[in-house]
Nucleic acid binder design. Structure first.
Length: 485
RNA sequence: GGCGCCAUAGCCAAGCGGUUAGGCAGCGGAUUGCAAAUCCGUUAAGCCCGGUUCGACUCCGGGUGGCGCCUCCA
């Protein structure tokens, strides 16, 4: 195993476990193992997922940009997630499958595909491994047996529960005192659990359950939390660098994961990261509140890059309120970025990149410093806009030679593209499709018409092209065109 | 009720014990046959009350308002 060479950086991450911002040092030099809680695939992907997975996508992209070799694991939960409190509820997937009269795996497959389709659209890099809970039942059972053997779990009527009292650290991650939560009002009365706070590792399957596995306790299916403990351990090892997920999973999901894994003797994650939530009118967007906007629906109104830019213009640990004003502002900002990117690339021509101008070196430094500070993407975008302003000024003043312009283009592609994922490769819009030469011909014709003051005809060319989705813009150095989507 | 988070200009959103955050919108200008687009410049802030300090948007205390979690959720 070779250690990759890294760009200079001093990354600090706010760790939810210790509640402090501390320097990141990977377990293995040059390598990062990260696990992020993936979706339970029983309904449409919504914007909440987008915030979470875009945030962690940028985390992974930044690590890779720094030069780390990353293994990014994100589960697909396709069994075991219960519909209501305690552990008396029906499995979410099974319920939906029953209502839709399809096989649970059909349902899981459908929503898994939709999930990836939506994430692809948002430019989210796919995880290196997307393990399914149903495909890792033996691994889950192994941990459950270990927990029983160590006295941290017990079986009742074909179900196995984790004994919260047997693990003194239970409650540390979410900052709660388990003795006090005992008084909680939402605990189900008719449980066969020894303690109402105990959670299910394994559930006995009732008569109609299709998804079931035979065990020494009879047929059943795994509880919600155990799949993440099993799959992270399998693919990242007993201890790994980062475990991430949404704030709403901090308790109970992550609390339970930690209890299970630690009690089984696994050191588990070294850093815990939690992204904040998306709100609508100041209220959390969630499936249960029914106020969610699916990613597909949001993408009907806004370009994927705009959604991505909007998500990244708020820190991952801050809530983001979904509102048209905010998306419109994001689009404006992104357009400014794109315009500069296009112009500087145009200036560069086919010239090879030369030395980076001083202002660009400064901007890159500011960008890295921002990302190093717990992935502060809003601040990093600020650095990018400083680069835009200086680049525009240099361009306008004729101060930017093609080699320097090429270097700036490369930097923008690197920071705005590779790291943040809001910029594509340079020059794609101009060269895409086969209409280029035709448009160029019309532009040339129109220039001739304009010089003869035949403005009615030249306007017809402009309007006609616009109707075809091609916009002409008259600038100082001639007419340029862009394709609108 | 318990635990935690937040309050910044018309809107979105950061850092920082003293020196411009940034974006959108607005305003002024450049450019243009017109338009659009683009570019440059620019206005504007820190919920309330107290305290610490030479100095607070930034630290401390107390209010007020909003949000999240307390076994469905990214």
């Amino acid at each position: 195993m070779t250690t990759p060479s890294l760009r200079p950086h001093q990354l600090q991450i706010l760790d939810s476990w210790t509640r402090t911002k501390r320097p990141f040092e990977p377990l293995t030099p040059g390598h990062v193992g990260i696990y992020v809680c993936g979706p339970t695939v029983y309904s449409d992907t919504h914007l909440g997922h987008a915030k979470s997975y875009i945030s962690f996508d940028v985390v992974v992209r930044y690590f890779r940009w720094l030069g780390y070799r990353v293994r990014y694991v994100q589960n697909i939960t396709d069994v075991g997630h219960l519909t209501d409190n305690a552990d008396e509820g029906e499995d979410k997937l099974l319920k939906r499958a029953r209502l839709d009269r399809v096989h649970p795996m059909e349902l899981a497959e459908t929503y898994t595909r939709l999930y990836f389709r939506d994430m692809d659209a948002l430019g989210v890099t796919r995880p290196d491994i997307s393990p399914r809970a149903t495909q890792h039942v033996p691994e889950q059972l192994a941990i459950i047996r270990q927990l029983i053997q160590k006295g941290h779990a017990y079986e009742v009527g074909g179900s196995v529960y984790f004994s919260v009292k047997s693990w003194s650290e239970y409650g540390k991650l979410s900052g709660r005192d388990i003795e006090e939560s005992e008084e909680g009002t939402r605990v189900s009365v008719r449980s066969d659990k020894r303690d109402p706070r105990d959670f299910a590792l394994w559930k006995a399957a009732e008569g109609g359950h299709i998804l079931r596995w035979d065990t020494e306790w009879g047929p059943g299916f795994p509880g919600w939390h155990i799949e993440c403990s099993a799959m992270s351990q399998k693919y990242l090892g007993d201890t790994f660098d980062i475990h991430g997920g949404g704030l709403d999973n901090q308790f109970p999901h992550h609390e339970c994961e930690i209890a299970q894994s630690h009690a089984a003797g696994v050191p588990f994650a070294r850093f815990w990261m939690h992204n904040n939530l998306i709100t609508v009118d100041g209220q959390k967007m969630s499936k249960s509140l029914g106020n969610f906007t699916s990613v597909a629906k949001a993408l009907e109104k806004h370009a994927p890059e705009t959604v991505r830019f909007w998500v990244l213009s708020t820190h991952y640990r801050s809530p983001a309120n979904y509102a048209d004003d905010a998306l419109t502002a994001a689009k404006g900002g992104l357009d400014r970025l794109l315009n500069c990117y296009r112009e500087v690339h145009r200036k560069a021509g086919s010239e090879a990149p030369g030395a980076l101008p001083d202002f660009a070196v400064r901007a890159e430094r500011a960008f890295v410093a921002s990302m190093d500070d717990d992935f502060n993407t809003p601040l990093a975008l600020g650095a990018l806009f400083d680069l835009v302003r200086e680049t525009n000024a240099a361009l306008a003043g004729g101060q930017l030679a093609p080699p320097a312009a090429a270097a700036v283009t490369q930097l923008m592609a690197s920071l705005g593209g590779d790291v943040l994922g809001v910029l594509g490769p340079p020059g794609v819009a101009e060269t895409s499709g086969s209409v280029g030469p035709l448009v160029e011909l019309l532009i040339d014709l129109r220039k001739e018409l304009k010089s003869r003051k035949a403005f009615d005809l030249s306007d017809r060319v402009r309007d006609g092209l616009l109707a075809q989705g091609i916009e002409l813009k008259d600038g100082k150095e001639g007419t340029v065109w862009t394709k609108k989507n």
